[in-house]
């Protein structure tokens, strides 16, 4: 179960962010090119907002495969850092994927860290819970 949870969590976090809507607010020079490339690869994502030292990434549609994992994490983290954030919060929105929700719930309940961050249940709806993953990035 732990391994499965790790897999889904890894996939969720890393596939969720190769390109961010609105990332130009961080002055990212390659926004257009990256967006085009990511969409061509079939990766559609959410958006990031920064308040103080906290960058919050709202997950949208997550399409892709595990091949995008590492680059995805690096991109999200570097963009949050570029915005001078010290913490990255990933808000999943309502998760209706039962396996993924169960994996995230197990992680939240066990208190196990993920990339040095924590998983918490932001909304505990039986059919569609919401999770927040908080990762220190300083």
């Amino acid at each position: 179960m732990t391994r499965l949870a790790g897999y889904w969590l890894t996939l969720l976090i890393l596939l969720s962010g190769p390109v961010l809507e609105g990332q130009d607010r961080f002055g990212h020079a390659d926004l257009a090119a990256e967006t085009t490339a990511a969409r061509a690869a079939g990766v559609y994502t959410g958006s990031m907002n920064v308040a103080g030292k906290v960058a919050t990434y709202e997950v949208g549609v997550v399409v892709g495969d595990s091949g995008t994992i590492l680059s995805g994490l690096r991109t999200v983290t570097s963009q949050a850092r570029a915005a001078v954030a010290e913490t990255l919060v990933i808000n999943t929105g309502h998760v209706v994927n039962e396996q993924l929700a169960a994996s995230l719930m197990a992680r939240a309940q066990s208190g196990a860290t993920m990339f040095g961050g924590t998983v918490e249940v932001a909304y505990q709806g039986a059919a569609a819970p919401i999770f927040k993953i908080t990762i220190p990035i300083k």
Binding site: E21, V62, E98, A128
Partner: peptide
């Protein structure tokens, strides 16, 4: 992945225009 579902390209909607609940309904 989040909705565990197939989605056609012309159905993709800008989630920034949706509330969290609306996005949840979309995924359902």
């Amino acid at each position: 992945l989040i909705s565990d579902a197939f989605v056609w390209n012309d159905e993709l909607i800008d989630f920034q225009t949706l509330s969290q609940g609306e996005a949840g309904a979309m995924r359902c």
